[in-house]
Design a protein around this nucleic acid. Sequence first.
DNA 1: CAATCCACGTGAAGAC
DNA 2: GTCTTCACGTGGATTG
Lengths: 338, 338
Amino acid sequence: MEDPTNLFHQYQVDYSLDDLNFQSFSSESYSSYNPNFVPENPQNLSNNTPLEPPQTEFERPAKQLKTNSWNSCTTNNNGQISAKGSPSASSSQLISFEKYANSASATPDNKHYNNLEGSVIMKPKYEPGLNGYNMVFQSSCEAQICSPNYGQVLKRAVGSMSRSPLHAQDHVIAERKRRQKLSQRFIALSAVVPGLKKMDKASVLGDAIKHIKNLQERLNTLEEQAAKKTVESVVFVKRSQLSGDDETSSSDQPLSEIEARVSGKDVLIRIHCEKHKGCLTNILNQIEKLHLTIVNCSILPFGGSTNHITIVAQKDVEYSMKVKDLVRNLRQALLKIN
Amino acid sequence: MEDPTNLFHQYQVDYSLDDLNFQSFSSESYSSYNPNFVPENPQNLSNNTPLEPPQTEFERPAKQLKTNSWNSCTTNNNGQISAKGSPSASSSQLISFEKYANSASATPDNKHYNNLEGSVIMKPKYEPGLNGYNMVFQSSCEAQICSPNYGQVLKRAVGSMSRSPLHAQDHVIAERKRRQKLSQRFIALSAVVPGLKKMDKASVLGDAIKHIKNLQERLNTLEEQAAKKTVESVVFVKRSQLSGDDETSSSDQPLSEIEARVSGKDVLIRIHCEKHKGCLTNILNQIEKLHLTIVNCSILPFGGSTNHITIVAQKDVEYSMKVKDLVRNLRQALLKIN
DNA sequence: CAATCCACGTGAAGAC
DNA sequence: GTCTTCACGTGGATTG
């Protein structure tokens, strides 16, 4: 049997679960009933101060109480683990996957029939205070009474093959380990999902899915908006650098200049143009046609024949326009006016 | 027993699992062995064309083959489900939680002893071709031979209480439903986590945790950058354009730009700078020190962290100043302010 | 009570 | 062959 720690250690590092007290994972007591179990050092499993001392870990096998195995470990809204009785407000819910996996008191488990190690196939009697698998069996009616070769009778009785009784123990242990790994990752997942109210496995999964979708969506919008904005700024600079860029650059254009800059949804438009009748209203009309909502406007007469117009507008949410196109549209509108 | 669809339908809508063929979830055949089961319409569970026709769904209980229940459903790197034999490259892994839950062939399950419905507690014989729980039992050695009250003997034999045999069926069914829900969410989770190579439950959880952390981190960095960097980039580039007037171009000057133009006695000053306490009054003080009389002033907050200030002033008659010097003076004054 | 959740042991079956 | 993963049925525990 191999060392079961290598799988866990990886995730304790990668997912920074060190601050979690995996109380349910102290598998060094396997060797008490499995003699050929490789003992492991428990400190690479939780290498920090445990939140609470593990209560008298006797044997591994158990299905005990449900709560209090993970108490005083809540998740706050930032997805961080606030340990040790955190008074974080809303979510005082307790995480308790793999409940009481190694507390005291004996095993009310070993259900069904454990045909292992040549022991008589019997129903285990609930006998608190006993250790592990060395338990008291009581002879019930489903006891195996008609065959003396204990572990093998089930194996061939149904016609299908079963495990050899030697490896059956390993199978149980491996399965336990697998369950522990899953439970740990459930806890780790619930740690990185903020604001989950229920701590069920299904709810954790559901909220994790919801959270991932939410994050992905926000990230997409933010990322494309960031990419667009850098391009826009470049375009904007190139445009502002020279007064008349490209197409309409050449000719007659009178002393009217347009500058626009964008920050998020806000657009600042600055126009310096000749005085004209209906100049401002025409400009505002053109701007509003471009799916912009004007939130501020000031016009300053300057120098006797020109106006200096400053406009702050906001882009409509569903409409996005490049600064270049915005300036071009405004310029063409202004050309028609003049 | 309540309708088990309400829970699933929610997630089929919310998480857009519609394009997934939950082959393992056709619980309408419960009623064959559970007479008081509420039949449900299966079309609100998977309301689109299934990827492949469900192969002859007989009964629910089964643990059959491992693969091919979710074949031709892979996840590409975008977290989308590419259905029906997608030739997407690297990951030809199959999702197969809840494997073959309702395919043909009988049940090699019903392990242990199913003390339900007053049937004799026996080991089920593997008999392919039979339906569900109406299976053939063979009398093995662990048969319950010494008590005629079938379901109750186990219950009180061990001293601990168990379920009544009537509700034991419901317990089995409820547990099945719970497992199905979990499996569905596992599949849904694996659908929204891109680039996962292994399809284990543990790996899905681990990669989901990793993905959430990665998304959260990227979102944080991107979000904090989005506020200031866009404005910074715009202003920064704009500054290079403005530094056409040589001299002070080199310095560390923060993101503020000054533009001035003169027409006769009128001076139009436009300043785009960061928000600052007393920003406007300081600027106006500096302007008035330059023998300018302010006749109009407007300040527009823009983009959350900057102000766009437009000032119209008039030169005092006896004082004449070049635009260049005016800008330089204003810039130095603004530097002292910032 | 009933409903729900969980860990357990176990056989089956794919993956190495 | 061994190893791993899975779903299953089941009892215990909690919750309402």
